[in-house]
Amino acid sequence: MEKAIERTLFASRWLMAPMYLGLVGALIILLWSFVMELWHSMILLPSLGVDDAMMAVLALIDLTLAANLVIIVIFSGYENFVSRMDTADHEDRPEWQGEVDFSTLKLKLIASIVAISGIHLLKVFMDVEKYADDKIRWMLTIHLVFIVSGVLLAAMDWISIHAKSMKKKGKGEAY
């Protein structure tokens, strides 16, 4: 009975596979948005001023960072929680694939979120007169929360790694 339960629990990880395939759909949505934004910018190119061109480029960078975030989640999530991808001999295999553990994934995710938030704030600052002061304050507050969260996650990981290494060396108990 115990082995059957354990096999079922272990096999349940495959329930995540359709979710990762769904994220491929999200990647397609981001690609469509990117192409539409690029097309829109190219149509307006003759009349674009410097500020408008910067806003268009920042929008494209924003979409690209979001797509990078989705790829990181798909690859590392699938490999950490479902199954290893058989791509070791593929010439285009990303260096980090297969080496991103859950801790590294959290840090990459928060770093991507901070970058996306920062670019969004930059777009707001470039067109600041369109936004109410209280909305800008909220956006800054949320951005700072992302930054502080990232620093705290990194600190917790550092403490955890340090505690494990101390325990391995036999220099004390890890708390």
Results as ranks from 00 to 15, higher is better:
125 F>C: 01
170 G>D: 04
114 V>T: 08
24 V>L: 15
40 H>Y: 13
90 H>C: 00
134 D>Q: 12
174 A>C: 00
8 T>R: 08
175 Y>L: 06
143 H>I: 00
63 L>T: 08
74 I>C: 03
24 V>W: 15
120 H>E: 05
132 A>L: 09
88 A>E: 13
84 R>S: 02
93 R>M: 10
60 L>Q: 14
3 K>Y: 03
162 H>G: 00
39 W>R: 13
84 R>D: 10
129 E>H: 10
91 E>R: 15
162 H>V: 07
127 D>W: 11
92 D>G: 04
66 A>D: 01
126 M>Q: 12
147 I>Y: 11
82 V>Y: 06
49 G>E: 11
149 S>K: 02
122 L>E: 07
24 V>T: 05
41 S>K: 02
60 L>I: 07
154 A>Q: 05
46 P>S: 02
79 E>R: 10
102 F>P: 00
158 W>V: 10
159 I>V: 11
64 T>Q: 01
150 G>V: 02
96 W>L: 08
3 K>G: 01
168 K>G: 00
76 S>V: 05
7 R>M: 11
162 H>T: 13
103 S>D: 07
30 L>E: 07
72 I>R: 01
153 L>I: 15
121 L>I: 12
129 E>M: 06
132 A>G: 00
29 I>M: 13
54 M>I: 13
95 E>W: 15
175 Y>I: 10
93 R>N: 09
140 L>R: 07
19 M>Q: 10
142 I>C: 04
100 V>F: 07
133 D>R: 13
24 V>Q: 09
57 V>N: 09
122 L>N: 01
11 A>N: 10
127 D>H: 10
38 L>Y: 13
130 K>V: 08
171 K>H: 10
163 A>H: 12
132 A>R: 14
93 R>Y: 12
8 T>A: 12
37 E>L: 03
23 L>F: 15
159 I>S: 00
108 K>Q: 12
89 D>F: 14
59 A>E: 06
135 K>E: 05
40 H>T: 04
166 M>W: 14
81 F>Q: 01
82 V>K: 03
98 G>I: 00
7 R>D: 09
24 V>G: 07
96 W>Q: 02
158 W>L: 11
111 A>D: 11
4 A>R: 12
16 M>K: 10
36 M>W: 15
24 V>Y: 13
58 L>E: 10
105 L>K: 06
116 I>V: 13
135 K>F: 14
20 Y>L: 11
77 G>K: 07
140 L>W: 11
36 M>P: 00
39 W>L: 04
59 A>G: 02
30 L>N: 03
90 H>L: 07
136 I>F: 06
38 L>F: 14
144 L>H: 09
13 R>K: 14
103 S>G: 01
129 E>W: 15
69 L>M: 14
25 G>H: 05
145 V>W: 12
132 A>K: 13
131 Y>V: 02
24 V>S: 12
79 E>M: 13
3 K>F: 06
54 M>V: 08
72 I>Q: 03
118 G>H: 04
60 L>F: 03
126 M>V: 04
154 A>I: 03
47 S>M: 14
160 S>Y: 15
7 R>W: 13
49 G>P: 00
29 I>C: 06
174 A>H: 07
